[in-house]
Design a protein around this nucleic acid. Structure first.
Lengths: 190, 190
DNA sequence: TGGCTCATGTAAGCCGTTACATGATTTT
DNA sequence: AAAATCATGTAACGGCTTACATGAGCCA
């Protein structure tokens, strides 16, 4: 039985993809993940190093010791099997995983009856969060040009999505501010 | 030492929140999560039942056996301490967790050089996915009216967000279709 | 009477983060 | 000389999903 796309672990996918993009060491993979896919797919050292070894055992990657002076360093590359597994995964029509954990939304869900001022602070914090993501995304590529699929496409998606979220926050903040002003007026009347 | 908001586990938060909304059994909590928060915060039986027991040990919830005929059934309710923990969490200014795992985006990130037709299929599948989410969200509340924070606010967010994603997919599909037509013309010329 | 819903739980396993440990090289 | 960066790894723990196991009540 051939190793198929379904056998790739989540972190295995990132690793194979990054190796094809020319990354070589576990360290390098982690660095690039942290400024690219981590906005929709993170990976930690605790996953990357063990997974590289497992991928090697399964023949999807090969390794070579390439120290920098006295500093240990292992370069990895895709094998033909690994490349096939990557392509199979990319072409696979299995329902792609999509998970979200958004604590701010969970707070808002349970916010009926809370002080408007407090809720407002939750929304403002959420907006600031999305703004900081947008800022970091803009740093990555200040001048998007490449119309092809690949890193630019997902960057553009991220920018658009977080921009939308910022606008939603602003609208919601205005709504809550009006509520606040209204209840202040009512209080004054009493 | 008082139990503070920081001690609440992720699932613990959902449970306390749902109990305040009037849910009573683990089963009921799971049912409601599956048609509400699960779009931004899921929970499974394997987490809910053990967590209810832990919350009880810590005094944040209380339980009472309330069988339906011969069918075992345990009703839970918030204690004063639990209510305080919930409020503390809602008001806490700790950076709220925000995690995304979007396999479709990961595929697109690694899609440089893939057949345009294949990439197009990935984007179409993504659009269908968002469309099905929007369809399910619309079923929940066909006529949103409530302007207050709470379930309606997050529903509105979900609808807007997934709608935005659908539009992005459509734009991207058109872009890729043009690319496909262009390369078909070029091939014809050769 | 058969299937669905209500209801509770456990066990195995996967996946992941954090913190720790180590040490060389490069930059300031 | 110190701090940052390059580089690799492990251990402990947390959290979650899936599958399994069980059984009562309700409806067609």
């Amino acid at each position: 039985m051939e190793a198929s796309a379904q056998d790739l672990t989540p972190t295995g996918r990132v690793i194979l993809g990054m190796l094809r993009l020319g990354k070589r060491t576990g360290y390098e993979i982690k660095q690039i993940v942290d400024v690219s896919t981590r906005f929709f797919w993170a990976a930690s050292y605790g996953q990357i190093y063990p997974e590289l070894k497992r991928l090697e055992e399964r023949g999807l990657v090969g390794s070579r010791s390439e120290p920098t002076g006295g500093r240990a360093r292992t370069e990895y590359r895709l094998t033909a099997t690994g490349e096939r597994a990557l392509d199979d995964w990319l072409a696979s029509e299995a329902e792609p995983a999509h998970e979200v954990r958004d604590e701010a939304m969970l707070k808002l869900f349970f916010s009926e009856g809370r002080d408007t001022e407090e809720v407002l602070e939750t929304v403002r914090a959420l907006r600031r969060k999305h703004e900081s993501v947008v800022a970091r995304l803009r740093e990555i590529h200040p001048e998007p040009v490449d119309p092809d699929p690949g890193p630019y496409l997902t960057l553009e998606y991220g920018l658009g999505l977080h921009d939308w979220a910022i606008e939603w926050c602003k609208r919601t903040e205005r709504r809550l501010e009006r509520r606040l002003a209204r209840s202040a007026r009512e209080k004054a009347r009493v």
